[in-house]
Amino acid sequence: MNAETSAWERRSAVRVVPPVRPRKLAKVPFVELADGRLQGVVSSGSDIERVYVSSFTAGTHAYSCSTNNNRPCGALPSGSSPCKHLHLLAAEAVLQYGVDRVARYLRVDVGDGASTGADLVDSMNGQVERAPAATVFSRFLRHLNYLEIPDTTTPIPEMHWFPALGAGR
């Protein structure tokens, strides 16, 4: 172990979670690398009440897309290629996390020069495989629920462990 690592390990306020980059949220309000998948929620282009739950599985690169009510996406008959929702998910994930982090999580060999979600999708060769939409959708609702919790003016001294650090500068 070198001296720099050892000094870092003895600090209280260090960044552990890599920063998330800002992106437009309108089309794909939710993206996450969790449960062994790149998964997220894509707003329907035609029906404002409907959303699609889309995912790519790490390792196998199997993909899935269905509505939040678990109806399969019409544009994704078995054996076809990823639908536009999956393409949008990949594109926004790359904006949010950077192509390297997404590729590493999914265990995709994107090669040098890959920079977009399309590069990422092109480098995967998985099959359609239905993944449960309900879990991801409920994680999305949990995510949205944060914005419903009221703020507080009682100080939270514990936040001193979480300094705001210049993201993406």
Binding site: P22, L25, Q96, H143, Y146, L147, T152, T153
Partner: peptide, 25 residues
């Protein structure tokens, strides 16, 4: 003295948008 406001947020709200979470003050 200090005055604090803390608000829940999600990871995709970053940068100057953070202030909008504190708009009730």
């Amino acid at each position: 003295v200090r005055a604090s406001v803390a608000a829940p947020k999600v990871d995709t709200i970053v940068g100057p948008a953070l202030w909008r979470l504190l708009q009730w003050h």
